[in-house]
């Protein structure tokens, strides 16, 4: 299928396009006489979302504020937008960490404190029944918060729904969440064991690590771990 990674049926919300993809797959079952691979010849229509999307809300940055405080400020600003999207969709993807749909602030506070203080080994305190151990939990906390940010963006005025790349650009260039992820990536690098470095790889998309290169362990880091 000639579709972007994460869009195996082509286009979100286009029922006929999705059904045509399914029909093409099913028809192969009737026509093929042996295991067969065929290219799907139709590209997904260009969605209104584009790579030149920009978020209409900008977040003020005070130099002396902690990352935790900045992320919480962002959460507060975006909460009405996210609530709007959740109400429209009647669902949310938020909660893989074990947090309830309304525990966004607790997840944000916990992630911010990890970014500010660098504790990547102890489970955050609080009343959430976390579904992962540390440091892997961090990766899923980020996913939950990204879900919340995406929900907020989806409700904002305008036809444009941003592409995956545009969302990554925005998160990592304009939000405290992005700064927090980069700070945690540094902490994980500092800890330096195999699990922490793999978590860094699962945390930062390729091409977005502030220090450059792949976010997965480098050959030098792997070598260092072998020695240890």
């Amino acid at each position: 299928m000639p579709f972007a990674l994460g869009r195996p049926l082509g286009t979100a919300g286009d029922t006929e396009f999705q059904k045509n993809v399914l029909r093409a797959s099913f028809e192969m079952l009737q026509s093929a006489v042996e295991p067969t691979i065929e290219d799907y010849p139709i590209e997904a229509p260009v969605e209104s979302g584009s790579s030149d999307w920009s978020c209409p809300v900008s977040f003020a940055v005070a130099e002396d504020e902690s990352i935790s405080a900045r992320i919480l400020a962002e959460i507060n600003l975006m909460a009405p937008w996210s609530a709007e999207t959740r109400a429209t969709r009647d669902r949310t993807l938020f909660g893989v960490t074990g947090a309830g749909p309304d525990q966004v602030e607790q997840v944000a506070r916990a992630l911010g404190e990890i970014a500010d203080h660098g504790n990547v080994t102890d489970l955050p305190a609080g009343d959430i029944s976390w579904q992962f151990e540390m440091p892997l939990l961090i990766r899923h906390m980020v996913d939950d918060l990204r879900t919340f940010y995406h929900e907020a963006v989806a409700a904002q005025p305008g036809d444009s729904s941003p592409s995956h790349e545009a969302l990554n650009d925005w998160i990592f260039s304009s939000t405290a969440l992005g700064d927090g992820i980069q700070a945690i990536a540094k902490h994980l690098t500092h800890v330096g064991d195999g699990e922490s470095l793999m978590t860094r790889g699962f945390l930062v998309p390729e091409g977005y690590l502030a220090s450059g290169g792949s976010s997965f362990p480098t050959p030098a880091e792997r070598q260092e771990n072998k020695k240890a």
Binding site: L5, G6, G13, R89, L93, H150, A154
Partner: peptide
Amino acid sequence: FDRSAYQQ
């Protein structure tokens, strides 16, 4: 990979 399309 893109999760935003799935959310939508």
